[in-house]
Each structure stands twice: as C-alpha cells, then as structure tokens.
C-alpha cells in the first residue's frame, strides 16, 4: 500500500521545512510531494536545498490547480492512497492513520478530516464566521446530496485510487474542497468524515480558504447546486 501526501505550498518559507521534517519523523514509509504554487518567497530555494520531493508550478494556479497537480502525480506514479495535507502546519500528522483507515477497510472512497465532528478532538475550532459559512455550505450539501458533511472546507482529506484517477482527470479548481466533495458523492462514491484536530497556523499568513465575503458563499452554494444538478442529469455512477 503506497501512500502519498500532497502538500500544496504558496509562500510557506516559514513552515514548509518543519512540516516535511515532522512527516519524516513520524514515518519513513510515507511519501510526500510538495507542490510549490509559484511562491514569491524562498519556498522553492528551501525545497531544493533540502532535497525535498517537490513539483514546481511554473505559474501560480491557486490551491485547486496545485492540489490537482498532486493528484496527477499520484496517478502517474500509481499510488493507492493520496492525502491532501496543508503546507502551513495546520494539520497534524498523527491523524494520518485515522484518516486512512476507512479507505483501508473499504468503508469509504474519500475521507475528510473534520474539525467539527467531535468538538473535543480539535483544539482549534476557527472563527465564528468561518464556522457559520461552513454550516451554510453543509446545509446545501445535505439538501443536494443527502449526505452530512460537517466540515466541507477542510483541506485534510484522503482518497483512494479510484478518486485519484477522477481528480487527475477533472478537479474543480475554483472552490475545490466543497465542490469536489459534492461531485464525488453525486458520482456514487462513498465519502466519510473522521474527527481530526487542527492547529492554528504557526507562521506566515494564510492566503487560502477564507470566508471573506458573502460573495464567496453565494458562489460556492451556486457551484454546489450546479454540480449536483449536472451530475444527477448524467445519471451518476
């Protein structure tokens, strides 16, 4: 069973080395690849200096495009499980077995690490506005797919071989986390959540996944509804 961690990184010079060292210290069997999404700081130099396995995107694509590159790589190399893992130190390596287990036991095709599933588990619950936004997205996912996803914007997720192939072919790059979840449920894949703990960022500034505006919410909800409608029309899997 070969497992690949996909680590998207944009301007993560403060965090990226520590994250990689943590993974190496945790397990020697885990492969990882850092996707440098056209960082403007020293991220690339750090990756090269320390001989960290990385792919350097020649242009900045945003989180969705970066993560999909990771899935394409995983697909090419024939990995069995791919895990999305943030390059900013928010995610905790010790939860990797938990997040892989439902896939290993054949209970799920995709597993999402949720901050909200078990409130005691996570020390970091994020701000009120983010949680509120997350709830709205959850509500619409429930309405369109009948599945309960408590943390639809979580970037900590594991996928099996079938979904790696799906994502390598087509991955929603605009609002990747909620959209990809809806797409996979509508295509008939089993999506499961496990409780995880997330830490607060330890350095640098977060550039991604912020509920800055109502604008974002409206677009995500629209995307979810459109995705589910499109896929239902095609009959799914």
């Amino acid at each position: 069973m070969r497992v690949l961690l996909i680590i998207p990184a944009y301007n993560e010079q403060e965090n990226i080395l520590r994250v990689c060292k943590e993974i190496e210290a945790y397990s020697k069997e885990l492969d990882y690849v850092v996707i440098n999404d056209g960082s403007k700081d020293n991220t690339l130099a750090i990756l090269e200096e320390n001989k960290i396995n990385h792919i350097n995107l020649i242009q900045n694509l945003g989180i969705g495009g970066a993560v999909q590159t990771g899935y394409k790589y995983a697909h090419q190399q024939g990995y069995d499980i791919a895990i999305q893992f943030d390059g900013d130190g928010q995610h905790d390596v010790t939860y990797i077995p938990n997040i892989c287990e439902p896939i290993l036991q054949g209970q799920a095709d995709m597993v999402i690490g949720s901050r909200y599933l078990d409130k005691k588990e996570s020390q970091f619950q994020s701000t009120f506005m983010r949680r509120f936004g997350g709830n709205i997205i959850s509500f619409f996912i429930k309405r369109t797919t009948k599945n309960k996803i408590t943390d639809p914007t979580s970037g900590f997720r594991a996928t099996n071989k079938k979904i790696i192939a799906e994502f390598a072919k087509e991955y929603p790059t605009e609002y990747p986390e909620p959209e990809s979840t809806v797409c996979m449920i509508c295509k008939g894949y089993k999506v499961k959540e496990v409780p995880v703990s997330m830490k607060e960022r330890q350095g640098g500034t977060s550039s991604i996944r912020f509920f800055k505006t109502a604008d974002y919410m409206i677009k995500v909800v629209l995307a979810i509804i459109l995705d589910s409608m499109n896929l239902k029309k095609k009959g799914g899997k």
């Binding site: 990385h54 792919i55 350097n56 995107l57 020649i58 242009q59 694509l61 495009g65 999909q68 590159t69 394409k72 790589y73 090419q76 790059t173």
Partner: peptide, 16 residues
Amino acid sequence: SKVNITLVQEISLLNK
C-alpha cells in the same frame, strides 16, 4: 483559463 491550468500542470509535471 481551464486550458491554461492544464498546460501549467503538465509542463510542471514534465519538468519534475
């Protein structure tokens, strides 16, 4: 822009 994303990804993977 979709085509562009694919191009950047494939070139970067080839570089790798």
